[in-house]
Structures are given as structure tokens and as C-alpha cells.
Amino acid sequence: MRSVYAAMRRLFHAVLLGLVGAGIVHIVVLLLVPVFSERDAWSRLSMASDLYRMNRLDAEAGGAPVVKSVDPLFYASACRFDLEEGVVRIRAPGNVPFWSVSVYDRSGHNIYSFNDHTANGGKLDAVVLTPAQMIDVRKDLPEDLQGAIFVEAPIDEGIFVIRSFVPDDSWKPIVSRFLDQSSCELQDF
């Protein structure tokens, strides 16, 4: 009788150990999926176009969206940049009901966000640069950057995303034009 209990205890111990090990492996695999994924936002945008080119992220631009949007009331556009090549300036003409901007690092972590309420006159004019580049720009700030929003980002490569609210169908062409005319340019100061 004693050997039956000992055998059952060893079996229970082995099953429990196997379940704990499987749980640990499962968690590690889930955490490593983004690291090994080839279909992240950076990869999808790099297949769509080169650095410093705005790409519509919504299906309204025609074709399949580059990155799926979670909110159908927002249209979006994005551009990839490399701050090792220089400072990046993003502008968009016109007025829309609401716009917001996010700067992400290459891995998709949000570095900085702002919206039209923090911009000078509601106009989108932003400059993304590293802290070292910011020191150089402050020494002799060009006059055309006086109203721009400066985003100091401690990254080399990143993604700049513009989202704009579309309250109803009458705003679709205006918001589309706002995003289509937006620019992402490498600046040399």
C-alpha cells in the first residue's frame, strides 16, 4: 500500500512539474513574439515606402491599410525617420476638427504625444530631434521654427503618426487632404 502512495505522489509531482514548466515556456513565448515578429509596424511601413515619406494607415487611401486602426472615426498617416541622418520636421496644412500626434521608437513604444490644443494656432508644425541636436538648434534657432513644437527623443529611429478625427462623411475629403498634404522632411540646420 505504501508503494502505491509513493508512486502516486511521484506521478503527481511529475505532472505538476510538467504543468509549471509548460506555463513558463508559454509565457516566455508570448513575451518574445513582438521581438521576433517580422510584421510589426516598422516592417510594414518600410515595405510601403522609404524613410521620410508619409503613408496613410487607413483603408480610405485605397487598398488595404498598412496598420489596422482601432477607431473608424480617425484617419491616420505615418512616416519613419532616422535621427542619425538629421533633424526631422513634420508639417500639415489646413484645419481639421481634431488632430493628435505620437512619436514612437522603432519597437513601437510611445515616446511623446501632443494634439492640436498644444500647437501654435492649431497648426501642425513639429520638429523631432535628439537631445544633442536640440543643443545645436538652440544655439542659432532658425526664424521659420519659432512656432514649431520641439520633440526631444532619445532614439535613433522612430515613427511619427498623425491621427485626425472624422466627425461625419462631410469631413472625409478635408481630413484626407490634411493627411495627404502632410510632410515629413529631413532638415539640415
Rank of each mutant, 00 (worst) to 15 (best):
F114K: 04
S183D: 06
F81M: 07
G122C: 01
A76T: 00
K68M: 05
L145K: 09
G94D: 04
A148K: 09
A78L: 06
E84C: 05
R91M: 07
E85K: 14
P131T: 05
R138Q: 14
R80F: 07
V87A: 09
I149S: 15
S107V: 02
I155N: 10
K68W: 02
E85A: 10
D188R: 12
V101P: 06
S170A: 10
K172M: 05
C79H: 02
V96G: 09
Q181C: 07
S113G: 02
D169G: 04
N115A: 08
V96F: 10
F178P: 08
V151D: 08
Q181F: 07
Y112S: 06
Q187H: 06
K68N: 08
F150E: 11
D180T: 05
S69G: 13
E143N: 13
D140C: 11
A126P: 11
V161C: 10
D105E: 04
E85N: 10
V67S: 02
D180R: 11
V96D: 11
F178G: 05
V67T: 01
L141A: 12
S107D: 05
V175H: 07
V128W: 12
D169H: 07
S100N: 15
C79M: 05
S170C: 00
G94S: 02
V137I: 12
F81Y: 14
A78H: 09
I90Y: 12
A132H: 01
L124S: 05
A78V: 05
R177A: 09
L145R: 11
E185F: 00
N115K: 04
Q187D: 07
E152H: 06
V88H: 09
S69K: 01
R80V: 03
L179F: 05
D156T: 12
M134V: 01
I162M: 12
I155A: 10
P167N: 06
Q146R: 15
H117P: 01
E84Y: 01
Q146Y: 14
G122E: 04
P131V: 01
D125N: 13
S183Q: 13
D180Y: 00
D105W: 04
V103M: 08
P173Q: 12
G86F: 06
S113E: 06
M134W: 09
M134K: 15
V67E: 04
Y75K: 07
I90P: 13
W99Y: 14
V128S: 08
V103S: 09
D188E: 10
D136N: 10
G108Y: 11
T130A: 06
L145Y: 15
R163E: 11
P142E: 10
A132F: 03
F150A: 07
Q133A: 15
D180G: 06
T118D: 15
